Structure formats: structure tokens, C-alpha cells
Measured scan of single mutants.
Amino acid sequence: TTYYDVLGVKPNATQEELKKAYRKLALKYHPDKNPNEGEKFKQISQAYEVLSDAKKRELYDKGGE
């Protein structure tokens, strides 16, 4: 599973699309609303952290993490 899959976006997604997808999923899986989905929330946050940063995203796209 790639970070793009976690957020449900395509690899060519814009920053705005990433932000929108992250917010939607973060609300859905937030531990306050969904106590059993803490791990999913962490995955979503990690994916967004990497993909929202241009340098980290470039490194990730080249095969790094």
C-alpha cells in the first residue's frame, strides 16, 4: 500500500487534493470518533506528512521514505 493509496489519491494529485483527502479521512478515522481506528489514523497522518512536503514527496516518489 502506498501513501497515495492510504489517502485515496492519484500520484499526480495536487497539494489541494491531498489536503482535502487528508481532512476527510482524518475526520472519519479520528480516535475521538473512531477509537478502534487509531492505527489507521496514524497511517493517514504519516502519509499526509510525507506527501504534503515537496522535498519528502519527491524523495518518496523516487523510492525512498
Rank of each mutant, 00 (worst) to 15 (best):
T1K: 13
T1M: 14
T1E: 11
T2C: 15
Y3A: 04
Y3I: 04
Y4C: 01
V6H: 05
V6N: 03
L7T: 00
L7G: 00
L7F: 02
G8C: 07
V9D: 00
V9K: 01
K10G: 10
K10T: 12
K10H: 12
P11K: 10
P11Y: 08
P11L: 06
A13P: 02
A13H: 02
T14W: 01
T14E: 03
Q15N: 10
E17C: 05
E17Y: 03
E17H: 04
L18V: 11
K19E: 15
K19R: 13
Y22K: 01
Y22A: 02
R23L: 15
R23G: 11
A26Q: 10
L27P: 04
L27S: 13
K28I: 13
Y29Q: 02
Y29N: 03
H30G: 13
P31K: 06
D32H: 10
D32T: 12
D32N: 12
D32I: 10
K33H: 14
K33D: 08
N34G: 08
P35L: 07
P35S: 08
P35K: 09
E37W: 12
E37S: 11
E37V: 06
G38S: 14
G38V: 15
G38A: 15
G38I: 15
K40P: 03
F41Y: 09
F41V: 03
K42L: 13
K42E: 10
K42G: 06
K42W: 12
K42N: 08
Q43V: 10
Q43Y: 08
Q43D: 07
I44K: 00
I44W: 02
S45H: 14
S45C: 14
Q46P: 01
Q46H: 14
Q46I: 15
Y48P: 00
Y48S: 01
Y48A: 01
E49W: 11
V50M: 05
V50R: 04
V50K: 03
V50P: 00
L51D: 00
L51M: 01
L51C: 01
L51V: 03
S52L: 06
S52C: 08
D53Y: 02
D53E: 04
D53Q: 05
D53I: 04
A54P: 15
A54G: 08
A54F: 10
A54Y: 09
K55R: 12
K55G: 10
K55S: 11
K56V: 05
R57Y: 02
R57P: 02
E58I: 07
L59E: 15
L59V: 10
Y60R: 03
Y60T: 03
D61V: 02
D61C: 04
D61G: 03
D61M: 02
K62P: 04
K62Y: 08
G63N: 13
G63D: 13
G64K: 10
G64V: 15
G64Q: 15
E65N: 12
